[in-house]
């Protein structure tokens, strides 16, 4: 045993132990979250995504109105249905890439090790980043959808505030799920570029391959309608699509036989089913990320 027993410099009674306890979990989470939110809103990705979201939203509003026989911007209820497809494309990409860059890029810069050398736990750092980025995503969604609503209102058309709020709320839930998934990728990857690349690949799979996979699966395995519906619930994008359309138009005719089956079979409990699925997509990836992050080596 190597023991250092001598003291080279000692002041009698001068060894100071901090009299105050470390900050609590909520306080640390909020400290990290505010820092993350400030960083995010200053970042280019936030500005670009918000602009893209707003501009495309306005374009969709206009096109859907023209397609319905009217001229110009009109009818937010119909436009909301068009915006769902935009949300399906933009929000998952935005949330996945934001989450994927969060932990991995800090680790690469050496910032994470320095941060975790402070009196803050890994769970607090992870949740703080999650809350901060969620705030940035909420701001982006509200600004994008708010721009569409403002223009429609300015043109004198009905905006159906309830539809807008529903769409914003469900877009945010989808963003939370995808953000947690992105953070899961971030804690697993060694490099930020790998995490972001994997996030983009996952986005492609969710957006394009899921639909095609469901169709192919139905044809190849002669899936029954209830099996097709159950499989649809495995994809957060499908859940968002069905849930948001169900909120706008309870018939779900536009989504085909599986959705029709869902309405007939589950009726009033559909909201609960969709909420449970979305909650699982929010909690499970974030929980997995927390467990993996607590065990990862920080270099």
């Amino acid at each position: 045993m190597s023991a250092l027993t001598g003291s080279t410099t000692r002041l009698d009674g001068a060894v100071r132990t901090p009299a105050f306890a470390p900050p609590g979990m909520v306080r640390n989470i909020m400290t990290v979250a505010v820092r993350e939110l400030r960083d995010a809103v200053r970042a280019r990705w936030f500005v670009l995504y918000t602009l893209a979201f707003a501009v495309l939203g306005l374009g969709i509003s206009y096109v859907s109105a023209v397609g319905a026989g009217g001229v110009g911007l009109s009818g937010f209820g119909r436009t909301a249905a068009g915006l769902i497809n935009l949300v399906l494309l933009v929000v998952p990409l935005m949330a996945l890439t934001a989450g994927a860059g969060s932990i991995a890029s800090d680790r690469e810069r050496g910032m994470l090790a320095y941060l975790l050398a402070q009196p803050v736990s890994r769970t607090e750092v992870l949740l703080g980043k999650y809350v901060g980025l969620a705030g940035a995503l909420l701001a982006c969604i509200c600004l994008g959808l708010g721009a569409c609503a403002s223009v429609l209102a300015w043109k004198g058309d009905a905006t159906h505030p309830a539809s807008l709020v529903w769409l914003a709320a469900m877009s945010f839930l989808l963003a939370l799920g995808m953000l947690g998934t992105g953070m899961l990728l971030s804690v697993m990857a060694r490099k930020a570029s790998v995490a972001t690349g994997t996030a983009v690949f996952l986005w492609l799979c969710l957006v394009f391959v899921t639909d095609l996979g469901l169709m192919a699966g139905t044809m190849a395995f002669h899936l029954r309608i209830e099996e097709l519906f159950a499989l649809s619930l495995a994809s957060p994008l499908q859940v968002f699509k069905m849930w948001s359309l169900h909120a706008v138009d309870s018939s779900l005719d536009v989504l085909g036989p599986a959705a029709l089956y869902a309405v007939e079979e589950h009726g009033g409990s559909l909201h609960l089913i969709f909420a449970a699925c979305m909650t699982a997509w929010i909690v499970v990836p974030l929980g997995c990320a927390a467990v993996i992050f607590s065990r990862r080596r920080i270099t």
């Binding site: 306890a21 470390p22 900050p23 640390n28 400290t31 200053r42 050496g110 320095y114 050398a117 009196p119």
Partner: peptide, 30 residues
Amino acid sequence: MCVGYVPQEIGFYDDLGVAEAVRYFGKLKG
């Protein structure tokens, strides 16, 4: 809480101001 740590090379957020960084880490230390 009992430790002040100085690493070999600091990896701060580059956009952070000096005073802002001190306040941020001060908050984390309560």
